[in-house]
């Protein structure tokens, strides 16, 4: 398939419809107050789904050359790496392993140096 694909009307309208519904859903979910970790997961999950719809059907990646999809995925992968690796620091600042103070304490009573 070439990049010149003319996207069928039903895909465009269907995508827009799905996006409207998902927006309503994400607001509705907000008001029913899902408990702590799951509310973020649901909100991000819906956002990812919406973003995928936009990328696949509005931006035409579904029909397009694969390299363009690879480019977008690369940006997502490197963003996730940036977040993940940064959080190895920010989430563990106050959890030392004690690697700096593992030096054995000098024995209290030792014989003098030979």
């Amino acid at each position: 398939m070439s990049g010149h694909h003319i996207i069928p009307m039903k895909f465009l309208l269907g995508t827009a419809g799905a996006l409207f519904v998902l927006t309503a859903l994400t607001v509705a979910v907000h008001y029913i107050h899902i408990p702590a970790p799951f509310n973020i997961i649901v909100a991000i999950g819906i956002a990812v789904l919406k973003a995928s719809l936009v990328a696949m059907f509005f931006m035409g990646l579904f029909w397009d050359k694969k390299i363009n999809t690879i480019a977008l995925m690369l940006s997502v992968v490197f963003f996730v790496l940036m977040v993940g690796v940064t959080m190895l620091d920010t989430m563990f600042r106050d959890k030392p392993f004690g690697i700096y103070d593992k030096a054995p304490a000098p024995p209290a009573t030792t014989s003098a140096a030979p």
Binding site: F78, L81, M82, V85, L88, D89, T90, M91, F92, R93, K95, P96, F97, I99, Y100
Partner: peptide, 21 residues
């Protein structure tokens, strides 16, 4: 090259976990 930037920060006060990683 994208996964090693913290080697510039070993003495910055970042977490010990990330210095090791």
């Amino acid at each position: 090259g994208f996964l090693v930037w913290g080697h510039h920060m070993f003495t910055s006060g970042q977490s010990e976990l990330s210095t090791v990683v």
